[in-house]
Design a protein around this nucleic acid. Structure first.
Length: 262
DNA sequence: ATGGCGAATCATATTCGA
Protein backbone atom coordinates (compact mmCIF):
# COMPACT_ATOMS: atom_id res chain seq x y z
CA UNK A 1 0.00 0.00 0.00
CA UNK A 2 1.58 3.26 -1.15
CA UNK A 3 0.18 6.67 -0.22
CA UNK A 4 1.67 9.71 -1.94
CA UNK A 5 1.28 13.45 -1.46
CA UNK A 6 2.07 16.03 -4.15
CA UNK A 7 1.42 19.75 -4.43
CA UNK A 8 0.98 19.91 -8.21
CA UNK A 9 0.51 23.70 -8.55
CA UNK A 10 -2.49 23.41 -10.94
CA UNK A 11 -3.85 19.99 -11.92
CA UNK A 12 -4.82 21.27 -15.35
CA UNK A 13 -1.28 22.39 -16.12
CA UNK A 14 0.26 19.26 -14.56
CA UNK A 15 -2.26 16.67 -15.77
CA UNK A 16 0.06 14.81 -18.16
CA UNK A 17 2.91 14.77 -15.65
CA UNK A 18 0.65 13.36 -12.95
CA UNK A 19 -0.65 10.67 -15.33
CA UNK A 20 2.92 9.73 -16.34
CA UNK A 21 4.00 9.63 -12.71
CA UNK A 22 1.08 7.41 -11.66
CA UNK A 23 1.90 5.05 -14.52
CA UNK A 24 5.43 4.43 -13.31
CA UNK A 25 5.04 4.83 -9.54
CA UNK A 26 1.68 3.00 -9.33
CA UNK A 27 0.64 4.34 -5.91
CA UNK A 28 -2.61 3.23 -4.33
CA UNK A 29 -3.44 6.73 -3.15
CA UNK A 30 -2.38 10.19 -4.28
CA UNK A 31 -3.26 13.26 -2.23
CA UNK A 32 -3.00 16.45 -4.29
CA UNK A 33 -2.80 20.08 -3.24
CA UNK A 34 -3.08 23.35 -5.13
CA UNK A 35 -5.32 21.90 -7.79
CA UNK A 36 -6.48 25.46 -8.58
CA UNK A 37 -9.73 24.49 -10.26
CA UNK A 38 -13.43 24.40 -9.48
CA UNK A 39 -14.87 20.92 -9.03
CA UNK A 40 -16.85 20.81 -12.29
CA UNK A 41 -13.71 21.62 -14.31
CA UNK A 42 -11.43 19.10 -12.57
CA UNK A 43 -10.01 16.68 -15.20
CA UNK A 44 -11.32 13.56 -13.46
CA UNK A 45 -11.82 11.30 -16.48
CA UNK A 46 -8.23 10.29 -17.36
CA UNK A 47 -7.55 9.37 -13.74
CA UNK A 48 -10.79 7.43 -13.42
CA UNK A 49 -9.88 5.58 -16.61
CA UNK A 50 -6.66 4.51 -14.88
CA UNK A 51 -8.77 2.95 -12.16
CA UNK A 52 -8.73 5.69 -9.56
CA UNK A 53 -11.68 6.87 -7.52
CA UNK A 54 -11.54 10.68 -7.40
CA UNK A 55 -12.70 13.06 -4.67
CA UNK A 56 -12.18 16.80 -5.08
CA UNK A 57 -12.65 20.03 -3.17
CA UNK A 58 -11.59 23.00 -5.21
CA UNK A 59 -12.17 26.67 -5.91
CA UNK A 60 -11.30 29.11 -8.63
CA UNK A 61 -7.61 29.99 -9.10
CA UNK A 62 -6.33 29.22 -5.61
CA UNK A 63 -5.90 26.31 -3.21
CA UNK A 64 -7.89 23.12 -3.86
CA UNK A 65 -7.27 19.54 -2.71
CA UNK A 66 -8.10 16.11 -4.13
CA UNK A 67 -7.67 12.42 -3.40
CA UNK A 68 -7.14 9.68 -6.00
CA UNK A 69 -7.51 6.10 -4.77
CA UNK A 70 -7.39 2.64 -6.36
CA UNK A 71 -9.44 1.39 -3.40
CA UNK A 72 -12.94 2.70 -2.66
CA UNK A 73 -13.14 6.13 -1.05
CA UNK A 74 -15.45 6.05 1.96
CA UNK A 75 -16.69 8.71 4.37
CA UNK A 76 -15.44 11.58 2.19
CA UNK A 77 -15.86 15.06 3.64
CA UNK A 78 -14.50 18.48 2.73
CA UNK A 79 -13.47 21.30 5.02
CA UNK A 80 -13.43 21.43 8.79
CA UNK A 81 -17.13 21.91 9.50
CA UNK A 82 -18.39 18.32 8.93
CA UNK A 83 -16.04 17.18 11.70
CA UNK A 84 -15.84 20.08 14.17
CA UNK A 85 -19.03 22.02 13.41
CA UNK A 86 -19.56 25.46 11.95
CA UNK A 87 -19.32 27.24 15.29
CA UNK A 88 -15.62 26.36 15.48
CA UNK A 89 -14.90 26.43 11.75
CA UNK A 90 -16.08 29.99 11.18
CA UNK A 91 -14.67 31.39 7.93
CA UNK A 92 -11.90 28.79 7.73
CA UNK A 93 -13.72 26.60 5.21
CA UNK A 94 -13.89 29.35 2.59
CA UNK A 95 -10.48 28.37 1.28
CA UNK A 96 -10.50 24.75 0.07
CA UNK A 97 -7.61 23.24 1.99
CA UNK A 98 -8.76 19.99 3.59
CA UNK A 99 -10.40 16.80 2.36
CA UNK A 100 -10.68 13.48 4.16
CA UNK A 101 -11.69 9.91 3.29
CA UNK A 102 -11.33 6.41 4.63
CA UNK A 103 -9.36 4.09 2.34
CA UNK A 104 -8.77 0.45 3.22
CA UNK A 105 -9.45 1.22 6.88
CA UNK A 106 -7.06 4.19 6.96
CA UNK A 107 -8.42 7.67 7.69
CA UNK A 108 -6.66 9.96 5.23
CA UNK A 109 -6.56 13.67 5.96
CA UNK A 110 -5.18 15.63 3.02
CA UNK A 111 -4.23 19.21 3.91
CA UNK A 112 -2.91 22.28 2.15
CA UNK A 113 -1.79 24.36 5.10
CA UNK A 114 -1.67 28.12 4.35
CA UNK A 115 1.77 29.45 3.46
CA UNK A 116 1.52 32.47 5.73
CA UNK A 117 3.32 34.99 3.50
CA UNK A 118 5.71 36.46 6.11
CA UNK A 119 6.01 36.24 9.86
CA UNK A 120 3.66 38.71 11.55
CA UNK A 121 1.46 39.34 8.50
CA UNK A 122 -2.30 38.87 8.42
CA UNK A 123 -1.76 35.69 6.41
CA UNK A 124 0.63 34.46 9.08
CA UNK A 125 -2.07 34.91 11.72
CA UNK A 126 -4.51 33.10 9.44
CA UNK A 127 -2.04 30.21 9.16
CA UNK A 128 -1.64 29.93 12.93
CA UNK A 129 -5.38 30.08 13.48
CA UNK A 130 -5.94 27.51 10.74
CA UNK A 131 -3.48 25.18 12.49
CA UNK A 132 -5.42 25.57 15.75
CA UNK A 133 -8.60 24.46 14.01
CA UNK A 134 -6.76 21.58 12.35
CA UNK A 135 -5.66 20.52 15.83
CA UNK A 136 -9.27 20.42 17.02
CA UNK A 137 -10.31 18.60 13.86
CA UNK A 138 -7.70 15.91 14.49
CA UNK A 139 -8.68 15.57 18.14
CA UNK A 140 -12.23 14.95 16.99
CA UNK A 141 -11.14 12.25 14.53
CA UNK A 142 -8.92 10.61 17.16
CA UNK A 143 -11.96 10.00 19.33
CA UNK A 144 -13.27 7.53 16.76
CA UNK A 145 -10.25 6.35 14.76
CA UNK A 146 -6.81 4.91 15.45
CA UNK A 147 -5.29 4.65 11.96
CA UNK A 148 -4.89 8.20 10.68
CA UNK A 149 -2.57 9.42 7.90
CA UNK A 150 -2.35 13.21 7.94
CA UNK A 151 -0.52 14.24 4.81
CA UNK A 152 -0.08 17.13 2.43
CA UNK A 153 1.72 20.41 1.96
CA UNK A 154 2.35 21.61 5.52
CA UNK A 155 4.29 24.74 4.54
CA UNK A 156 6.37 24.13 7.64
CA UNK A 157 9.86 22.65 7.90
CA UNK A 158 9.71 20.94 11.31
CA UNK A 159 13.44 21.17 12.04
CA UNK A 160 16.54 22.96 10.79
CA UNK A 161 17.78 19.75 9.14
CA UNK A 162 14.79 20.14 6.81
CA UNK A 163 16.16 23.38 5.28
CA UNK A 164 19.10 23.81 2.87
CA UNK A 165 20.25 26.81 4.91
CA UNK A 166 19.55 26.00 8.57
CA UNK A 167 20.13 29.65 9.51
CA UNK A 168 16.68 30.35 8.06
CA UNK A 169 15.35 28.29 10.94
CA UNK A 170 16.99 30.67 13.39
CA UNK A 171 15.77 33.95 11.90
CA UNK A 172 11.98 33.77 12.27
CA UNK A 173 11.63 32.84 8.61
CA UNK A 174 8.21 31.86 7.29
CA UNK A 175 7.81 28.03 7.33
CA UNK A 176 10.32 27.78 10.18
CA UNK A 177 9.24 30.27 12.82
CA UNK A 178 8.90 29.13 16.44
CA UNK A 179 5.13 29.67 16.44
CA UNK A 180 4.62 27.57 13.31
CA UNK A 181 6.88 24.82 14.60
CA UNK A 182 5.09 24.86 17.97
CA UNK A 183 1.76 24.40 16.22
CA UNK A 184 3.18 21.41 14.33
CA UNK A 185 4.71 20.02 17.54
CA UNK A 186 1.33 20.35 19.24
CA UNK A 187 -0.20 18.21 16.47
CA UNK A 188 2.60 15.67 16.92
CA UNK A 189 1.85 15.62 20.65
CA UNK A 190 -1.62 14.28 19.81
CA UNK A 191 0.18 11.13 18.67
CA UNK A 192 1.35 11.86 15.13
CA UNK A 193 4.85 10.99 13.97
CA UNK A 194 6.71 12.07 10.83
CA UNK A 195 6.94 8.99 8.60
CA UNK A 196 9.99 10.28 6.72
CA UNK A 197 12.03 10.49 9.92
CA UNK A 198 11.39 6.84 10.74
CA UNK A 199 13.82 5.97 7.95
CA UNK A 200 16.11 8.94 7.39
CA UNK A 201 18.01 10.91 10.02
CA UNK A 202 20.25 13.18 8.00
CA UNK A 203 19.38 16.52 6.45
CA UNK A 204 19.59 17.38 2.78
CA UNK A 205 16.23 15.87 1.80
CA UNK A 206 13.72 18.33 0.39
CA UNK A 207 10.26 18.32 -1.20
CA UNK A 208 10.04 21.95 -2.42
CA UNK A 209 12.45 24.23 -4.28
CA UNK A 210 11.71 27.86 -5.13
CA UNK A 211 11.13 28.51 -8.84
CA UNK A 212 12.74 31.88 -8.61
CA UNK A 213 16.35 31.38 -7.67
CA UNK A 214 17.20 28.28 -9.73
CA UNK A 215 16.85 26.67 -6.35
CA UNK A 216 16.47 23.12 -7.66
CA UNK A 217 19.67 23.11 -9.71
CA UNK A 218 21.47 24.40 -6.62
CA UNK A 219 19.48 22.03 -4.35
CA UNK A 220 18.40 24.89 -2.13
CA UNK A 221 15.22 23.19 -0.90
CA UNK A 222 12.91 22.73 2.03
CA UNK A 223 11.18 19.60 3.33
CA UNK A 224 7.64 20.87 3.87
CA UNK A 225 5.47 18.01 2.51
CA UNK A 226 4.83 15.30 5.07
CA UNK A 227 2.98 12.20 6.21
CA UNK A 228 2.14 12.30 9.91
CA UNK A 229 0.98 8.91 11.19
CA UNK A 230 -0.71 7.67 14.33
CA UNK A 231 1.26 4.95 16.20
CA UNK A 232 -0.49 1.94 14.71
CA UNK A 233 0.27 3.16 11.18
CA UNK A 234 3.72 4.47 12.01
CA UNK A 235 4.70 0.99 13.13
CA UNK A 236 3.42 -0.47 9.88
CA UNK A 237 5.33 1.92 7.62
CA UNK A 238 8.13 0.11 5.76
CA UNK A 239 9.47 3.05 3.74
CA UNK A 240 9.00 6.75 3.12
CA UNK A 241 10.84 8.60 0.41
CA UNK A 242 10.89 11.69 -1.78
CA UNK A 243 10.77 11.15 -5.57
CA UNK A 244 12.77 13.99 -7.09
CA UNK A 245 12.20 12.85 -10.69
CA UNK A 246 9.11 14.98 -11.41
CA UNK A 247 10.92 18.13 -10.24
CA UNK A 248 13.54 17.58 -12.98
CA UNK A 249 11.02 17.69 -15.82
CA UNK A 250 10.11 20.58 -18.09
CA UNK A 251 7.52 22.87 -16.51
CA UNK A 252 7.50 21.10 -13.16
CA UNK A 253 5.54 21.87 -10.05
CA UNK A 254 7.75 23.55 -7.46
CA UNK A 255 7.00 20.56 -5.19
CA UNK A 256 7.83 16.89 -5.79
CA UNK A 257 5.94 13.83 -4.51
CA UNK A 258 6.56 12.10 -1.17
CA UNK A 259 5.49 8.47 -0.76
CA UNK A 260 4.91 6.32 2.32
CA UNK A 261 4.64 2.55 1.96
CA UNK A 262 2.97 0.05 4.30
C1' DA B 1 17.41 44.73 0.31
C1' DT B 2 15.50 43.29 -3.88
C1' DG B 3 13.95 40.28 -7.21
C1' DG B 4 14.09 36.08 -9.34
C1' DC B 5 9.66 32.17 -11.66
C1' DG B 6 5.19 30.25 -12.70
C1' DA B 7 0.01 30.03 -12.66
C1' DA B 8 -4.66 31.98 -12.96
C1' DT B 9 -7.73 35.74 -13.83
C1' DC B 10 -12.07 40.46 -13.43
C1' DA B 11 -5.60 38.84 -18.40
C1' DT B 12 -1.25 42.33 -21.86
C1' DA B 13 -1.14 43.79 -15.28
C1' DT B 14 -2.03 42.00 -10.92
C1' DT B 15 -2.21 38.69 -7.17
C1' DC B 16 -0.53 34.78 -5.00
C1' DG B 17 2.69 31.23 -3.78
C1' DA B 18 6.69 30.08 0.23
Amino acid sequence: MKIATWNVNSIRTRKEQVLDWLNYQDVDVLCLQETKVIDQDFPRTPFEEMGYAVAVSGQKAYNGVAIFSKHPLEAVSCGFSPIVGEAITGKFDEQKRVITAVVDGIRLVNVYIPNGSSVGSDKYQYKLHWLEILNQYLQQLLQAETKICLCGDFNVAPENRDIYDPKKGDTNHIMASPEERSAIALIQSLGFQDAFRKFTEEGGHYSWWDYRTRAFSRDRGWRIDHHFLTPELYQKAVNCWIDRAPRKQEKPSDHTPVIVEF
